[in-house]
């Protein structure tokens, strides 16, 4: 009997490094959309605490434990990202949808990460505005994206079919920023 083998959403080799920025692929095993049923946010929060030891983050924020992160991912939507799928107990208070293969994730790190991203996203990326742990839905060069600010840079998620375009534009921006920094000395 045939067993199908999985494949990365990215065609081009990673990691990629230019100047003071680097781009690496994240391969979370599970990405699960959690959408609370009407009026069930508090109940969801309680169940999350119990089964995953995670709190329900407010808009634009995230929570995390050792194995899982819970990202606010838009109106009424949270993404549980990590090694485990959501506990079925959550299904009583929320709709659960597997998005593990619907989104791909990249990490853009380094001193110039924000400079690079400023080429592709209209977000206010200043550290005092977009802090580590914050999430934002915005565009990445015409693509819908979910951003997470990390201590070292950004995690950027786009829908899987856009993987190649996202990578292309990020690499171009990294190359351009590195060249501009060289002349700035």
């Amino acid at each position: 009997m045939v067993e199908l083998s999985p494949q990365s959403p990215f065609r081009d080799p990673l990691p990629f490094k230019q100047g003071r920025a680097s781009l690496t692929e994240n391969q979370p095993e599970y990405i699960s959309a959690i959408m609370p049923h009407q009026g069930q946010e508090t109940a969801l929060s309680a169940v999350l605490k119990k089964v995953h030891d995670l709190s329900l983050p407010p808009a634009g924020q995230s929570s995390a434990n050792k194995h899982l992160r819970l990202l606010w991912a838009g109106r009424g939507t949270y993404f549980l990202v990590g090694e485990k799928p959501p506990d079925r107990a959550l299904a009583r208070v929320a709709s659960l949808v597997d998005q593990s293969d619907g989104w791909c994730s990249l990490s853009l790190d380094g001193e110039d990460a924000a400079e690079v991203l400023a080429r592709l996203s209209p977000l206010d990326l200043r550290l005092k505005v977009f802090k580590p742990g914050n999430t934002a839905r915005s565009e990445l060069q015409h693509m819908m994206a979910l951003y997470l600010r990390t201590r070292s840079g950004f995690e950027i998620m786009v829908m899987r079919s856009f993987a190649h375009s996202a990578l292309h534009h990020l690499k171009e921006a990294m190359t351009s920023v590195a060249a501009q920094n060289r002349i700035a000395g």
Binding site: P122, S138, E139
Partner: peptide, 11 residues
């Protein structure tokens, strides 16, 4: 109200 102040291109 959810995301804060954003450029109108997102809307």
């Amino acid at each position: 109200p959810l995301c804060g102040c954003r450029d109108s291109r997102e809307f």
